[in-house]
């Protein structure tokens, strides 16, 4: 059972540990240095910044 207790404590340390490794990876790739670009990732030419979507309620012209 002690082995398992060690496993558990190891596990508890592993999550933030893996997170730290991932953080290093991210900063190496420069993921943390392009906040502006990254913030625009959900948008593209098809659904650009500045255009609201999903405006369907309480609008007469949108009703079918």
């Amino acid at each position: 059972m002690n082995v398992l207790a060690i496993l558990m404590i190891g596990g508890v340390l592993a999550v933030p540990g893996v997170a730290l490794v991932a953080l290093r990876w991210a900063s190496h790739r420069g993921e943390l240095n392009l906040p502006e670009r990254a913030a625009l990732l959900p948008f593209d030419e098809e659904e650009p910044v500045g255009r609201a979507t999903d405006q369907i309620l309480n609008r007469q012209s949108a009703e079918s």
């Binding site: 906040p35 913030a39 948008f43 500045g50 609201a52 979507t53 999903d54």
Partner: peptide, 12 residues
């Protein structure tokens, strides 16, 4: 952001 068409306030 998608619905209001505006990027997130602070990516940081």
């Amino acid at each position: 952001p998608k619905v209001i068409g505006r990027p997130i306030h602070s990516y940081y």
